[in-house]
């Protein structure tokens, strides 16, 4: 496989052809923030947190969906990018009802830690406070759309890893929601295999195991790439 040479934050690095910018950047020890990206799943480019500046391109590019190219000069943490990332996390915090204090994933949440990482001590935008009923009809799991960031990690996990495609998106814009089958209560789904991988992939407390209280959800999103890696070695 041919090797490429890129400059990332002033450092010359090499990468294999076919890698995305995100893979190259993370592979070189730079902790580029992401939210909708989860290793092993197809990249989505929706959260826009992994945006980087590429010399010669007018606008920042989402690293997770930008292929690395020979000679690219990439900046990952300019003041402008930091400002945009902060704005995006603020927009997410204001969009739904992310009440950290009473959340099953308090202390382990990706959105919560991103907010702290970007120094967000308050949100300047108006809270939209949408009314989104919780689905507790499933025997083992619950879904609180009020805590959802619409990253679609669960949708992709269900489709690409479990192969069930129980979860999908419905609605448009700010009214988008994760939908179970054709908008059924989760407990009535005939396609859900109750595998629980969606719960593991969720970065926030939107999907959770029942009977967990504040801060008790144990997250293991690394399970998804591990399952895929295991499959690869055993299916060969």
């Amino acid at each position: 496989m041919p090797a490429l040479t890129l400059t990332i934050d002033g450092r010359l690095v090499s990468s294999r052809a076919g890698e995305t910018l995100l893979q190259v950047i993370r592979g070189n020890g730079i902790d580029l923030p992401t939210l909708c990206y989860l290793e092993g799943l197809s990249p989505r480019g929706g959260c826009r947190l992994c945006m980087v500046e590429v010399a010669g391109r007018e606008k920042p590019q989402a690293a997770c969906v930008t292929p690395a190219e020979e000679g690219m000069v990439v900046t990952t943490g300019s003041e402008r990018l930091q400002r945009y990332r902060r704005q995006i996390v603020e927009l997410l915090l204001a969009e739904r009802n992310h009440t950290c204090s009473v959340c099953v994933v308090n202390g382990q949440c990706e959105l919560q830690s991103l907010a702290a990482r970007f120094g967000i001590d308050h949100v300047r935008y108006a809270y939209l406070s949408p009314r989104l009923p919780l689905d507790a009809s499933h025997q083992r799991f619950g879904m609180d759309p009020g805590r959802c960031v619409l990253c679609a990690r669960c949708v992709r996990t269900c489709d690409e890893v479990e192969g069930a495609h129980t979860l999908d998106l419905r609605g448009r814009g700010v009214r988008s929601c994760i939908s179970i089958d054709l908008n059924e209560p989760w407990g009535r789904s005939e396609t859900c295999t109750t595998c629980g991988k969606c719960v593991q992939s969720c970065p926030t407390g939107a999907l959770f195991e029942k009977w967990t209280a504040r801060g008790e959800k144990v997250r293991a999103p690394e399970l998804i790439p591990r399952i895929l890696a295991w499959r690869e070695t055993h299916e060969r």
Binding site: H98, T99, C100, S101, C103, N106, G107, C109, Q112, S113, A115, A116, R117, G119, I120, D121
Partner: peptide, 8 residues
């Protein structure tokens, strides 16, 4: 500091 900034 960052570790003292989280909500919740």
């Amino acid at each position: 500091p960052q570790e003292m900034l989280s909500f919740g």
